[in-house]
């Protein structure tokens, strides 16, 4: 078991945004969170990565309790969060952005070079942009940088929040392919994605969240056939 959430609740002030969430990601799985805007998907990712505190419940990451641990502890444990809106450092160069991706590890130069190479293998365009300020790149390139930066911490589990939002179809395809490639290298993925159809196609399992609670879960392929899901999320 990679990640297990047990009865997780969280609030913003008095508003309960997550209610008794039970979910899990198995090792080597792509798991997708499906739900409307404001359902609590992004919040769930933020609670996992220690940005928003959990009110109650427990997260186990490879058996280790990571509930309400500081983000640096969680990143070091092997969990990396590529947030919604990318949140890259626009004023820093691509290279500096990537360096910060492995901030929690003090790696020798050779290992850093290897990590850089593995990121370039996935996103060759970043190599030619290394000394460019990140803010001057296109949206697609910035998303690639955000994912590349997330990979620099050598995660076992990658949390991806809306990686295709606002991108051209061709770029979306590249990103989806990369996600599948990452899984084949042994990285587990928890994915939040507006493009539910595409997300379900590359996922093994999915959870459907409505107003902060999980209402349905199951194999991605089965959920694609579910009438309710078709109507609400796939527009069929």
């Amino acid at each position: 078991m990679m990640l297990k959430a047990e009865a997780i609740s969280a609030s913003y002030g008095r508003v309960k945004v997550l209610k008794d969430i039970d979910m899990s990601v198995e090792s080597g799985e792509i798991v997708c969170l499906v739900g409307a805007n404001g359902a609590g998907k992004s919040t769930l990712l933020k609670v996992i990565s220690g940005i928003v505190p959990a009110g109650s419940g427990k997260f186990l990451f490879e058996g280790q309790d990571i509930t309400n641990k500081k983000p640096d502890f969680i990143v070091k444990a092997g969990l990396s969060h590529v947030p919604e809106g990318r949140q890259i450092f626009a004023d820093l160069t691509v290279r500096q952005n990537l360096i910060l991706g492995s901030y929690v590890h003090n790696l020798p130069k050779q290992e850093m070079a290897k990590l850089f190479d593995s990121v370039f293998e996935l996103f060759p365009v970043l190599k030619s942009r290394l000394m460019q300020k990140a803010g001057t790149m296109s949206g697609g390139e910035q998303q690639m940088l955000a994912i590349g930066r997330g990979l620099m911490s050598q995660p076992k589990l990658l949390l991806l929040d809306e990686p295709s939002l606002g991108l051209a179809p061709l770029v979306v395809e590249t990103i989806l392919k990369v996600i599948q490639n990452l899984r084949s290298t042994g990285i587990s993925i928890l994915l939040v994605e507006q493009n539910v159809n595409a997300a379900l196609q590359i996922s093994d399992r999915a959870y459907v969240i409505e107003t902060g609670a999980i209402v349905t879960e199951g194999k991605a392929r089965e959920l694609m056939e579910n009438d309710e899901i078709k109507k609400s999320y796939l527009g069929m």
């Binding site: 990565s49 940005i51 500081k70 983000p71 640096d72 502890f73 969680i74 990143v75 070091k76 990396s80 969060h81 947030p83 949140q87 890259i88 450092f89 626009a90 004023d91 820093l92 910060l100 991706g101 901030y103 929690v104 930066r149 911490s153």
Partner: peptide, 13 residues
């Protein structure tokens, strides 16, 4: 200074 959320997610205090 530039992006608090981004920095926190990198494990920067």
């Amino acid at each position: 200074a530039e992006n608090r959320l981004g920095a926190s997610l990198m494990g920067i205090s």
